[in-house]
Amino acid sequence: MNHSEKLYKKLAWLLKYGSLLAMTILFLGIIWSFILPDSERSLKTPDTENFLSNLLPNSPPHLLNLGIMVLMLMPVGVVLVCLIHFISEKEKKYGLVSLAVLLVLILGIFLGAIQV
């Protein structure tokens, strides 16, 4: 198996099991939401101060939030895996491209967080 094949396999694995994990969490969150009809079903504006505590699976909306966050962060993980691979393989051009994509994604998260 050559190096590029390894990268494709790693990414396929990450996407497959990452989305399975997110689906499981979302499924449990939805079931929980309907078992406890009185629970508050929608989490209000996810303020950045409570960002991490909103991801603790202690209520249905928090569990759903966690599942959605796993999904939303998966592309960041994909680009990170590409970056590490290209750096370790000394493929400078695509290492830089991956780094640039990663930085723009982080910029997007940052801009999102500061616009609240």
Partner: peptide
């Protein structure tokens, strides 16, 4: 996926992700 991720966080932090609807 990468494209969606870039803008999804903007909507997320504006409080426009309805968790139950989105999960469903």
């Amino acid at each position: 996926g990468i494209t969606g991720c870039a803008s999804a966080f903007l909507y997320y932090f504006r409080g426009e992700v309805n968790f139950l609807v989105t999960g469903t």
